[in-house]
């Protein structure tokens, strides 16, 4: 039923700065099917945003994809020229960013910005594009789009701007929408609106979505598959159910344990992950999470673990899952929330 849309193989991205090579992404492989929503979860510095920028071909100097393939609809993106990438960006792959204020150009009307995207990629005249733009604004739930199309970004509120961004992104019916922390800058009630909108549009337009976020709740809401990143590597990948109900990597478990649950009466102590993320100028030679892991073994500091496949779609990079590893009692932090 599902057709492969995107395949990323062993991608490595580095930034060549004055302090040295920052290895932001150190060999990441994942794939995405048509109509699927994949969540990439990680903290700042985990490489999740760099991964998406690499796929979009939006890396700025001094960043560079130094290894690996990005295959989109059977075509290798890393070999494409800037010009070819420009034809793909916005048309076949679109992106929405965290900050809806800075990702819209303040000197053009919202309508102009949508029309520009449509005219550039779809070879229609301005009049037709304007009709489409108004249509698009209506689709993303902006009230009275005929009037709002001529507004400037500053006349929109934060939530409306993010809707407008989504309208621009989806105006050319892309096959893939990359949403990089689309709701982080928004309030909870607005976040709920936007997430609802993304889910709705994904189903309606059969667009694949890569949702990049640090918020496990957002991922649980929108995504069917989840990739957990840490220190420039994928720690664990699986379906949402596998990740949330059967996490196998201590980092995933740690994340679950460090957020408070809503359904307990008594104050419960949170279990934080001690320490801080690794410095990617000098990435650790073993598992990047080893210095903060409660189950660290000697091997973890020496050698990076290979992926262990718990099921065909659930893999995890942890030495504890190795067949020779000693049996260790692990608190996996899974909770079933009781919600009325």
């Amino acid at each position: 039923m599902s057709e492969r849309l995107l395949e990323v193989n062993n991608m490595k991205t580095s930034f060549y700065t004055h302090v040295g090579e920052v290895q932001a992404v150190r060999g990441v492989s994942f794939n995405l099917n048509k109509g699927e929503a994949l969540g990439i979860v990680g903290e700042s510095g985990s490489g999740k945003s760099v991964t998406s920028m690499s796929v979009m071909g939006l890396l700025q100097y001094p960043g560079k994809v130094k290894d690996g393939n990005i295959i989109f609809k059977g075509e290798e993106l890393t070999k494409k020229s800037q010009k070819e990438m420009m034809a793909i960006r916005g048309n076949e792959i679109a992106m929405i960013f965290q900050d809806p204020m800075t990702s819209l150009n303040p000197v053009y009307t919202i309508g102009n910005q949508i029309i520009e995207a449509i005219v550039r990629h779809q070879h229609v005249d301005k009049k037709e594009a304007r009709v489409k733009a108004i249509d698009m604004l209506r689709t993303v739930g902006i009230p009275s789009p005929e009037k709002r199309v001529d507004n400037y970004p500053h006349e929109f509120s934060g939530g409306m701007r993010q809707r407008a961004m989504i309208a621009i992104a989806l105006s050319c019916q892309p096959d893939l929408l990359i949403a990089d922390e689309p709701t982080t800058a928004l309030d909870v009630t607005i976040q709920a609106q936007i997430l609802e909108l993304i889910k709705e549009l994904k189903d309606k337009m059969n667009t694949s979505v890569i949702l990049i976020t640090h918020d496990l709740g957002v991922v649980a809401d929108v995504c069917s598959r989840v990739v957990v990143m840490y220190g420039g590597l994928i720690m664990e990948e699986g379906t949402a159910e596998q990740i949330f109900y059967d996490p196998s990597h201590p980092y995933t478990m740690g994340l679950m344990k460090s957020i408070p649950r809503m359904d307990t009466k008594e104050k419960q102590r949170l279990i934080p992950i001690p320490g801080t993320p690794p410095d990617l100028v000098k990435p650790p030679k073993g598992c990047p999470f080893a210095p903060r892991c409660p189950y660290t073994m000697k091997i973890c500091l020496e050698q990076a673990p290979e992926y262990t496949y718990l099921t065909p779609e659930h893999r995890s990079a942890c030495w504890l899952l190795h067949e020779n590893a000693p049996k260790t009692e692990v608190d996996n932090g899974v909770r079933k929330e009781v919600i009325k």
Binding site: G158, V188, T189, A220, D221, K336
Partner: peptide, 24 residues
């Protein structure tokens, strides 16, 4: 506000009855 919180539990959060507030 309470219903808008995304709960990190796929089943719960997908089946939750959300009160989506209109507008800003």
């Amino acid at each position: 506000l309470l219903s808008a919180i995304p709960i990190p539990d796929p089943e719960v959060t997908r089946n939750a009855q959300r009160i989506i507030l209109e507008g800003d």
